[in-house]
C-alpha cells in the first residue's frame, strides 16, 4: 500500500499523482517505469515516472484516463492509497554527453521525458525540447521542461499555444538549423513513428520509449512483445527504450489494441 500525498488535475483527462515510494524514489533512473494496481480486483498497469523526491521518498506519476484502471487511479485523492506499486522497472536511458540532443514529447509522453531531459542536461548536453499537445490546456510540464532545457519549442494541433503544427514540424526546423547528435521521442505510438521516420531521413540516432501492454512487468508474461530489427523483444526487460529506426511501429500499434474489445467490456461494466 502506497499513500498518495498529492494530487493535481492537469486537465479533465490528465492527473498528476505524487505517491510515497521511498525505495523506488531512490532507485529510479530516467527511463524506468512502475506497475500500479488499484483495488483487490485491480489490474496491473505500467505507468511512467515523471520525477522523484528522494528526501521526501515520493515519486510523481502523470496519468491519463483511458480505461477502467487509469480511471480508478485518477479517482483517488490525496490521503488514499494505491494497493500495489512496484518498480523501478525496465532498463534506464543510456545517457552520455553526445553534444546536442533533441527531446520530443507528445501528450502524457512528456512526463517520462522530463527525467530524461534532466539527465541529458546534467550530463552536459545542449538540450532542445519539442513539446506537442492537441491544445494549450493539454500541454503539461512546460515550466519544468524549460528549467532543464536550453530551448523549448511548443507545438499545438490547433495553434492555441506555441506554434501550430505537429511535433515533427518543430523537430525539422531544429534539425535544419543545427546539428543534432541524438534524438529521443516519447508519446503516442503514431507520433513516435513519424518522429522516427523524420530522424531516419536525417540519419540521427533516435530512441523511442514504448508503452506496451504488460501484466507483470518483469519479463514473465510476454504481452509487451515488440519487433525490433526483425527480432521479438520484451518491452519490460529489454526496453522500454529501443532504437526507433528499427521498431516495427505498425505491429506495435496493432498490439496496443490487442485487448480493445475486452477493455471496452470492462469499461461498460465499470460505468454501469
Amino acid at each position: 500500500m502506497n499513500k498518495i500525498v498529492e494530487k493535481e488535475n492537469f486537465s479533465e483527462k490528465v492527473v498528476k499523482i505524487v505517491v510515497e515510494a521511498p525505495l523506488i524514489a531512490k532507485a529510479r533512473k530516467p527511463g524506468n517505469f512502475v506497475i500500479v494496481r488499484v483495488g483487490e480486483k485491480g489490474e496491473r498497469i505500467p505507468l511512467t515516472i515523471a520525477g522523484a523526491d528522494v528526501k521526501k521518498g515520493t515519486i510523481t506519476m502523470i496519468v491519463q484516463k483511458m480505461g477502467v484502471s487509469s480511471q480508478k487511479l485518477c479517482a483517488l485523492e490525496a490521503g488514499d492509497y494505491v494497493t500495489d506499486l512496484v518498480g523501478p522497472l525496465g532498463k534506464p536511458t543510456e545517457i552520455h554527453n553526445v553534444g546536442t540532443v533533441l527531446c520530443c514529447g507528445g501528450g502524457v509522453g512528456v512526463a517520462p521525458l522530463l527525467p530524461i531531459v534532466e539527465g541529458y542536461k546534467k550530463a552536459g548536453n545542449k538540450v532542445i525540447t519539442v513539446l506537442a499537445a492537441r491544445n494549450k490546456d493539454l500541454l503539461i510540464l512546460e515550466d519544468e521542461m524549460r528549467k532543464h532545457s536550453d530551448e523549448v519549442i511548443i507545438m499545438t494541433d490547433d495553434g492555441s499555444y506555441g506554434k501550430k503544427g505537429l511535433v515533427t514540424e518543430g523537430m525539422e526546423e531544429v534539425i535544419q538549423r543545427e546539428k543534432i547528435d541524438e534524438c529521443i521521442t516519447i508519446g503516442p505510438a503514431i507520433m513516435m513513428k513519424f518522429c522516427s521516420l523524420l530522424t531516419k531521413k536525417y540519419e540521427i540516432p533516435t530512441m523511442a520509449s514504448l508503452n506496451s501492454i504488460m501484466v507483470d512487468g518483469t519479463g514473465m508474461c510476454g504481452a509487451c512483445r515488440v519487433t525490433v530489427d526483425g527480432k521479438t523483444k520484451f518491452t519490460c526487460v529489454d526496453g522500454p527504450e529501443f532504437d526507433a529506426h528499427k521498431i516495427d511501429f505498425d505491429e506495435m500499434m496493432s498490439r496496443l489494441g490487442g485487448y480493445k474489445s475486452e477493455e471496452q467490456d470492462k469499461m461498460d461494466h465499470f460505468q454501469e
Binding site: T218, G219, M220, C221, G222, R225, T232, F234, R255, G258
Partner: peptide
Amino acid sequence: GLPRFMNIPGENANGILSSNE
C-alpha cells in the same frame, strides 16, 4: 519467468499469447 516463443511468421499477431500471460 521468461516465456519462449517459436519465432514463426505472424507470432506477434493479437490473440497469440504465452501460457504465462
